[in-house]
Simulated assay, not measured.
Amino acid sequence: MIGGDEAGLPNRTQIRDCLVSLINGTLSVDAVATWARRWLLDDDVDIRDDVILDVLDTLAGADIETTPGVHLHGQEDFESWLTDFDLQVDAARDIS
């Protein structure tokens, strides 16, 4: 699975890689959602990057099912999440 940066936290490159892997099918929605929830639910983790927090929140719901075995989100959603992430990263760069 995807790791973290020097401090052990996910960084933007790893988040993007995660989204691309989700789109390509090299990571399952269950694995991605579990990984994202790990960061969101750990009280000892202090992620200060709003872009990362936003996409982790989205990824944490990647495995939501509408009925058993049928996921709410699919390929188009994952591609949209990647586009939104890239736009947020670009916008954050413009602010800095």
Rank of each mutant, 00 (worst) to 15 (best):
I52C: 01
F85Q: 01
V51G: 00
R93I: 00
Q14E: 10
Q88H: 03
G25T: 05
D17V: 08
I23N: 02
D77R: 04
P10H: 09
D42A: 12
N11L: 08
N11I: 04
I23T: 05
I52Q: 00
T66S: 15
L40Y: 12
H71K: 14
T67A: 15
L22S: 01
V55K: 00
D46A: 08
I52F: 03
L19S: 03
D30E: 13
C18T: 09
A62N: 04
D49Q: 02
N24V: 07
W81S: 06
I64G: 10
G69Q: 12
G25I: 01
D86R: 02
N11M: 04
R16M: 06
V55E: 01
W81M: 06
T83P: 08
H73D: 10
A7D: 15
G61F: 12
D50S: 10
L59I: 06
N11R: 02
I2C: 05
D5W: 08
I64T: 15
R37A: 09
W39R: 03
D86M: 05
N11G: 13
I23E: 02
L41N: 13
R93P: 01
D46P: 03
D44S: 12
N11H: 04
F78W: 07
A92Q: 14
L41Q: 14
H71E: 12
S80N: 12
A91Y: 02
A60M: 04
G61Q: 10
A33K: 01
G74R: 14
R37E: 11
A7Q: 11
S96F: 08
I2Y: 07
I64K: 15
V89A: 04
W39M: 08
L87Q: 13
R48C: 08
L22C: 06
L59D: 02
D77W: 09
M1D: 14
T67N: 13
V32Y: 00
V51R: 00
R16I: 02
W81V: 07
V70T: 15
A7Y: 13
L53C: 03
L59A: 05
P68T: 13
D63T: 03
I47V: 06
V32S: 02
D77N: 11
I15P: 00
A62F: 11
R12G: 03
I2A: 04
I95G: 06
T58W: 08
L19H: 01
L22P: 02
D94G: 08
G8S: 13
G25F: 05
L56I: 00
V45K: 06
S28F: 10
T34L: 11
W39Q: 05
D57I: 05
D57Y: 04
V51S: 00
G8T: 12
L22E: 03
V55T: 02
D94K: 07
G3N: 13
L9N: 09
D77P: 01
N24S: 09
I23A: 04
T34Q: 07
A60D: 01
I2G: 03
I47Q: 00
D50I: 07
V89F: 05
D49Y: 01
H71S: 11
V70K: 13
S21Q: 13
D90N: 12
N24K: 10
